[in-house]
Design a protein around this nucleic acid. Structure first.
Length: 259
DNA sequence: ATGGTTGTAATACAA
């Protein structure tokens, strides 16, 4: 089974790229973040014609997550237990969608950005992560994938210039501790062993030709529970998807799992 | 240098 995650930065504006990506890599299950737009506007018919089922959640003009699967899509759950809400209306903050696809529980996650360290959104981000961690404790013994845009760069090498992030979110000690708590609990960063060196980054800002200069960040992750991590045979970042006109600012990350 | 770019039933705001 081939599982991928991608912050697509608007599903409607990039539906052609999504369909091409699924075909190019023979993807079975794709988790999307920042789908944006209203649910009834999302162009899902083409995906359905290709044999995929689609579940979407929490679409507004900024957030929204989805799971696309051609190996079954069952037990869809929007949000996780005790997921904190923020903003007005709170429904706009749905950032998590769980579905069982081919025997794997897949959670598409869009972790709150946090904005600035002195912003209420930063505390919301930490609270959100703590509550996700609580919920995930009961998922560890089943094949489960927590995938998406974590908005955290866990290691210094995960940003192009750590000095440039001295006062920024994404690299603070509390954010990194929140991410590390999952690893301590036995979750595994499934793609990291297969994406070293120049393949490290998953996100490049649109500003200032960051992609062309490879000044990126690694903030998109697939964390696997122990039963799932044992099945990984390979992984890759599709950097080519970030190139050219009309790209999302994130590249997809792909993981292969033994059946 | 607080810029720059991209998206959205938007023309401000989030990323």
């Amino acid at each position: 089974m081939r599982l991928a995650t991608w912050n697509v930065n608007s599903l409607r504006s990039r539906i052609d790229r999504v369909e091409a990506f699924l075909a190019r890599h023979d993807v079975d299950v794709l988790a999307l973040q920042e789908t944006k737009g209203r649910e009834d506007q999302l162009p899902l018919m083409g995906l359905q014609a290709l044999g995929y089922e689609v579940a979407v959640a929490g679409t507004n003009q900024w957030n929204g997550v989805a799971v696309i699967s051609r190996v079954g899509l069952d037990d869809v759950e929007v949000g996780f237990p005790e997921m904190p809400a923020f903003g007005d209306p709170p429904a706009a903050e749905a950032r998590a969608l769980g579905a069982t696809c081919g025997g794997v529980r897949v959670w598409s996650l869009y972790v709150p950005n946090g904005r600035k360290v002195d912003d209420p959104h930063y505390h919301y981000k930490l609270d959100w992560l703590a509550r996700l961690h609580d919920a995930a404790g009961s998922w560890r013994d089943t094949p489960t994938a927590l995938v998406g845009d974590w908005n955290i760069a866990p290691q210094d090498e995960d940003v192009f210039d750590i000095a440039a992030f001295a006062t920024s979110t994404h690299v603070t000690r509390p954010e990194r501790a929140a991410f590390e708590a999952f690893l301590t609990d036995g979750w595994t960063d499934l793609a990291r062993p297969y994406t070293p060196g120049p393949e490290l980054y998953t996100y490049w800002d649109y500003y200032r030709q960051r992609f062309e200069r490879n000044r990126g960040m690694r903030i998109d992750f697939l964390l696997g529970s122990p039963p799932l991590a044992a099945r990984v045979t390979g992984a890759a970042v599709d950097r080519d998807e970030r190139a050219g006109k009309g790209a999302s600012d994130h590249a997809p990350v792909i993981v292969d799992l033994q059946d």
